[in-house]
């Protein structure tokens, strides 16, 4: 029988106070701008010498992963699965600019080395000494969903008892204007973040269950009905989404439930839906909901994630 996936712990470094709970979230004030990420003191997580060579996305990813693992009481996960939309774009930009402005000679490799998206997952693995499964999903706005889906497969088929699921994106000031011009953020502030979840097949001490996830390029309402019936769910309490809060308009008019938005707390970035999942786990932890649907849409692709409390099973 397919084994279940529980969130043993979840943590964020984002525009909110690092590692804080939903109780102290404050809506962001910088509309249309780039809201800075609030970084913690990295010294408890990364030796200062090593940290000096790392870009912000790597430091945040390692710190938030170590924080989440400690909270879950796990020193080394059996698998690390990451999602990132733009990857290590600060290092990419630095190497690219140097090459374009100064020519193709005498280039220093250090920025290139850290510029591939999987640098995040592999640096976490190196810092933990984790030789288990390791993969990185980079499908733009659905990079996190791909990583979540693969994590559920690894837990479901028993290949791993626990998985460190990560999401991270950075947005250097110099590139923000380029991305902003695309209208990608739809008027919301842009920001940066790193999130980590320890997913486990053990129910004990878990926060909630990730019941299922589906992503589709066609027939979203039909896919959602199929997802709900496949998991024998008739009722959800609330729909968490980056879409409009009104049930009448927006991409999710076919979902009658009350909508709660979350990007007012984290700003927008390619893997923001990971923050959405964090919000869902917090709603369950604080007893605000028992069955939640996380719904996302971008360029005609939809994703639906079902999150459930533990007492309702």
């Amino acid at each position: 029988m397919k084994r279940k996936a529980y969130i043993a712990s979840a943590a964020h470094i984002s525009a909110q106070k690092p590692f804080c709970g939903i109780e102290v979230f404050v809506p962001l004030a910088w509309e249309g701008a780039l809201v800075p990420c609030q970084d913690p003191d990295f010294r408890p997580f990364i030796p200062p010498m090593a940290a000096r060579r790392m870009s912000s996305i790597l430091k945040r990813s390692i710190a938030v992963s170590k924080y989440a693992l400690e909270k879950a009481g796990i020193s080394c996960p059996e698998a690390i699965v990451g999602g990132t939309g733009l990857g290590c774009v600060t290092d990419t930009e630095a190497f690219l600019r140097k090459m374009l402005e100064d020519g193709e000679y005498m280039l220093n490799p250090s920025r290139f080395i850290c510029s591939t998206p999987n640098t995040i997952g592999s640096q976490i693995a190196i810092s933990l000494g984790c030789r288990g499964f390791n993969s990185t999903h980079v499908n733009d706005r659905f990079a996190f969903e791909g990583a979540l889906m693969e994590s559920l497969l690894l837990l479901g088929n028993g290949e791993a008892e626990n998985v460190l699921l990560c999401a991270a994106d950075q947005m250097p000031e110099v590139l923000h204007s380029l991305v902003d011009r695309q209208g990608l953020w739809k008027g919301r502030p842009a920001s940066e973040a790193a999130l980590s979840f320890v997913l486990s097949s053990a129910r004990e001490n878990a926060v909630c269950e990730v019941i299922d996830v589906v992503q589709t390029r066609s027939n979203p309402s039909q896919e959602l009905s199929r997802l709900l019936s496949a998991n024998s769910i008739d009722e959800i309490d609330i729909c968490v989404t980056s879409d409009l809060p009104s049930g009448k308009t927006g991409n999710f008019s076919f979902i009658p439930q009350e909508k709660m938005t979350y990007k007012q707390y984290c700003g927008d970035f390619f893997t923001a839906s990971a923050f959405g999942l964090f919000v869902c786990s917090e709603l369950i932890r604080t007893g605000k909901a028992k069955k939640i649907l996380l719904a996302e849409e971008s360029r005609g692709t939809y994703s639906f994630t079902l999150i459930g409390g533990l007492c309702t099973n």
Binding site: T116, N118, T136, H137, V138, F142, G146, T216, R217
Partner: peptide, 12 residues
């Protein structure tokens, strides 16, 4: 084909 799902993996 009718591609109903896409994903992209980048592990170098």
């Amino acid at each position: 084909s009718n591609v109903v799902f896409t994903d992209v993996i980048s592990t170098a």
